Amino acid sequence: MSSPNQPLDLTVDGGTLTARLVDFPSVSGEETALADAVEAALRAYPHLTVDRFGNNVVARTHLGRSQRVVLAGHLDTVPIADNVPSHVEGDLLHGCGTSDMKSGVAVQLRLAATVVEPNHDVTYVFYDCEEVEAERNGLGHLFATHPDWLAGDFAVLMEPSGAVVEGGCQGSLRADITLTGVRAHAARSWLGDNAIHKAAEVLRRLVDYTPRRVVIDGLEYREGLNATRIDGGVAGNVIPDECRIHVAFRFAPDRSLEQAEDHLREVFDGYQLDIADASPAALPGLSQPAAQAFLAAVGGEPRAKFGWTDVARFSAHGVPAVNYGPGDPNLAHKREEHCSLSAIAEVEERLRAWLTA
């Protein structure tokens, strides 16, 4: 396993660098050692200006090009599930964060170190706390404190996309539905009012709910509304007086946050609903000239992004953005998470060609 005292070598191939990044544990909120290593490695290259805010590292070229592009990726992972250190089986690199998204970060670092004369000025952003609640998101903190560091004409989020351009992203709305009753002894249940039993109607609405499929700019987005947690109960001999159901609504980018919340309140009309976390969606924006040029350079047929990414943050600040990375989004957060070594090399090669053509 890589040590926090062991410097990162950005001259090794992308797969090897990904393995070294994976072996730096960096669960959300614990990214300091990896951020230190990334900062130190980038400061070794005189063609880059390197800045840091918290555990967020930003490296930039200043060549006076007519346009600036941004490549961004998060340093954190979900909690490790006995899948660190990394190991290789054939073409597959296994380990926590291989897909989401240390393979993308490795590609960023390789390009930052080796593309000295890009055709655009380039900003490389490495940020923390993407995998947790929105208020802790490092990219959000950078936009709030140093927006000039993130200025650009186009952005690429190196989120796992299977080496295919994924446009826009779903919005995310999470809420708690609180059901109340009257506590009583279980032997005299008629004196109480069981809050857990009231969950049946809420769950019925979820089971009967038909999520939309929406086509935007030729890309189909699929919405979803699901219960993800239920909490309730006091003791084995007590009728519970409270039950809480946590619901997650992933919505298409034709809805604003306000429209998504209105829809959620309509579905659960008659119930107390408290919004716990909200992140807006982002439209694909593939008709933008910068996006068209990027698509032409990397090739492939674009598709919709299922999930929320920080594409939405760039979009909200007027910077067109897409998702493009070597990881498989279907493997994100899984115990058996892995990434194809050939996909890492392929994405690096395509991005290098885009930046140097």
Results as ranks from 00 to 15, higher is better:
Val214Gly: 09
Val215Lys: 12
Ile216Asp: 11
Asp217Met: 11
Asp217Tyr: 00
Gly218Val: 07
Leu219Gln: 01
Tyr221His: 07
Tyr221Met: 05
Arg222Gly: 12
Glu223Cys: 08
Glu223Asp: 07
Glu223His: 05
Leu225Phe: 00
Leu225Pro: 00
Ala227Pro: 08
Ala227Tyr: 02
Ala227Lys: 12
Thr228Glu: 14
Thr228Val: 14
Asp231Ala: 14
Gly232Phe: 01
Val234Phe: 00
Gly236Met: 10
Asn237Met: 07
Val238Ala: 04
Pro240Val: 02
Glu242Asp: 11
Glu242Asn: 12
Ile245Arg: 06
His246Asn: 13
Val247Gln: 01
Val247Asn: 06
Arg250Leu: 02
Phe251Ala: 08
Ala252Met: 03
Pro253Lys: 00
Pro253Met: 01
Asp254Pro: 02
Asp254His: 09
Arg255Asn: 13
Ser256Asn: 07
Ser256Met: 07
Ser256Gln: 06
Leu257Val: 11
Glu258Leu: 15
Glu258Thr: 07
Glu258Ser: 07
Ala260Glu: 00
Ala260Gln: 06
Glu261Phe: 04
Asp262Arg: 13
His263Asn: 12
Leu264Cys: 04
Arg265Ile: 03
Val267Ala: 05
Phe268Leu: 06
Gly270Asn: 09
Tyr271Phe: 14
Gln272Tyr: 15
Gln272Glu: 12
Asp274Glu: 15
Asp274Ser: 13
Ile275Asp: 05
Ile275His: 02
Ile275Gly: 06
Ala276Ile: 11
Ala276Tyr: 11
Ala278Ser: 12
Ser279Phe: 15
Pro280Thr: 04
Ala281Gly: 03
Ala282Lys: 06
Leu283Gly: 13
Pro284Ile: 07
Pro284Val: 02
Gln288Ile: 15
Gln288Arg: 10
Pro289Lys: 04
Gln292Lys: 10
Ala293Arg: 14
Ala293Met: 03
Ala293Cys: 11
Ala293Asn: 09
Phe294Pro: 02
Phe294His: 08
Leu295Cys: 10
Ala296Arg: 10
Ala296Phe: 07
Ala297Trp: 13
Ala297Val: 09
Val298Asn: 05
Val298Ser: 11
Gly300Met: 05
Glu301Val: 12
Glu301Phe: 14
Ala304Ser: 03
Lys305Asp: 05
Phe306Thr: 15
Phe306Asn: 14
Gly307Phe: 06
Gly307Trp: 04
Trp308Asn: 08
Asp310Gly: 09
Asp310Ala: 11
Val311Pro: 07
Arg313Gln: 14
Arg313Ser: 14
Phe314His: 07
Ser315Tyr: 13
Ser315Pro: 12
Ala316Gly: 03
Ala316Leu: 10
His317Thr: 07
His317Ile: 09
Pro320Cys: 09
Pro320Met: 01
Pro320Leu: 05
Ala321His: 01
Ala321Tyr: 10
Val322Ile: 00
Val322Arg: 12
Asn323His: 03
Tyr324Cys: 00
Tyr324Met: 04
Pro326His: 00
Gly327Asn: 02
Gly327Leu: 07
Gly327Pro: 09
Asp328Thr: 03
Pro329Arg: 04
Pro329Glu: 01
Leu331Phe: 10
Leu331Thr: 08
Leu331His: 01
Ala332His: 03
Ala332Ser: 03
Ala332Lys: 04
His333Lys: 04
Lys334Ser: 08
Glu337Arg: 05
Glu337Lys: 10
Glu337Pro: 12
His338Ile: 13
His338Phe: 08
Ser340Pro: 03
Leu341Pro: 07
Ala343Arg: 12
Ala345Ile: 13
Glu346Cys: 09
Val347Cys: 00
Glu349Gln: 15
